[in-house]
Computed example of a mutant assay.
Amino acid sequence: MATAKQMVALIRGHVQRDDEQFLSLALQVAASEARQGRQDVADEIKKLVDQGRSGTAPAVKPIPLARPRAELEEIISASYPKTKLTDVVLGPDIKTRLERLIRHQSQRAVLRQHGRRPITHILLVGPPGTGKTLTASALAGELHLPLFRLRLDTLITRYLGETATKLRLVFDQIHSVRGVYLFDEFDALGTQRNQSGEVGEMRRVLNSFLQFLEEDNGTDSLIVGATNHPELLDRALFRRFGDVLRYDFPTAEEICSLVTSLVDRRVSKAFDWPSITQAATGLSQADIVTAVDDVIKDAILDGNRKVSETLLADAFIARKLSRDALQRL
């Protein structure tokens, strides 16, 4: 028999006309029935699901953009990104693993039918500006799902028990509305429990968070944690994520790919790439994008159609000097 949560999720899928979610949840009920020895009921549900899918192409239209409930409006911001993986410069390993995740999510019903769960938790770690937040947008775009971004500054409060209560509301939303949920600056929530000076309230919040992560969310929502400081995270968190992706500054090859995609036809065929990569090495993806954008805007205002490697190299060097000056403050 379906649990109360499964019944609620089934009804919600029907009301929102999300056929794929409805059928996926029905398969979860079938798997539960089979585990309890009611194979005839499980087979009947699977047969009905197969009938529902026969003769129809997989649904690729996006679900209606769901807004957070009133009590969550200050904690969660919702958007509907059109970003794709091709918009993010990624190393081959990270790209392969993200494509695998998308495949798991896209074919989650097949996995559920065989009693397996798709990947629903990933952790992105690395320096600022290396593409972590953009990756979350790309995953939402590829899966045709809304992106819900958690504002940890409003989630975490100084009042006893309030943060854990808000966190419960967030996970209720995760269990009821399928989407990509981004916990940015994740270290603010997942700090090590034995860290000196840490208050008992945050330890309780982290324990609650670990328990929430263990729950099987019936919607197969994707939870994405992103942090610049993985060394601050509690070790137990790493075990709760299906995959941990480590981002870094772009390589020389990735710099060329990124700059090419940005300047497009504004460069000559005899472009001096070694000088470009040398000047940009050590910059984040975000820094490179900003520097190139500044050069292109100057070229437009100056009436020039081409962007020279000298201008780009100078812009990258200036970006490094600016970054170093800020770090010394």
Rank of each mutant, 00 (worst) to 15 (best):
183 F>M: 05
180 V>I: 08
18 D>Q: 02
200 G>T: 00
228 N>H: 05
107 Q>R: 15
289 V>G: 08
123 L>N: 07
232 L>D: 10
180 V>P: 00
14 H>T: 07
80 Y>W: 03
249 F>C: 07
196 S>P: 03
219 T>Q: 04
107 Q>K: 13
313 A>Y: 04
93 D>E: 15
144 H>V: 06
64 P>G: 07
24 S>R: 15
4 A>E: 12
109 A>C: 09
145 L>R: 11
30 A>Q: 07
309 E>C: 13
311 L>K: 14
322 S>P: 10
145 L>Q: 04
81 P>N: 12
221 S>K: 02
283 L>T: 12
59 A>G: 15
189 L>V: 03
225 G>C: 09
54 S>P: 07
68 P>E: 03
300 I>Q: 15
62 P>S: 14
126 G>R: 01
286 A>E: 11
4 A>P: 09
19 D>W: 11
72 L>A: 06
120 T>R: 04
115 G>F: 14
42 A>Y: 08
207 N>C: 01
141 G>Y: 00
162 E>N: 13
263 V>K: 01
226 A>I: 02
83 T>G: 08
210 L>P: 04
241 F>W: 07
244 V>Q: 04
11 I>W: 09
132 K>C: 06
98 L>Y: 05
98 L>D: 05
62 P>C: 08
98 L>R: 09
121 H>V: 08
283 L>W: 10
214 E>Y: 01
156 I>E: 06
124 L>C: 13
13 G>V: 00
55 G>N: 10
263 V>A: 07
140 A>P: 00
106 S>W: 08
89 V>T: 13
220 D>A: 10
156 I>Y: 14
98 L>I: 01
88 V>T: 04
32 S>T: 09
7 M>L: 14
183 F>W: 10
18 D>H: 02
224 V>G: 02
277 T>N: 02
264 D>G: 01
76 I>D: 02
255 I>T: 00
130 T>L: 05
91 G>M: 02
25 L>M: 14
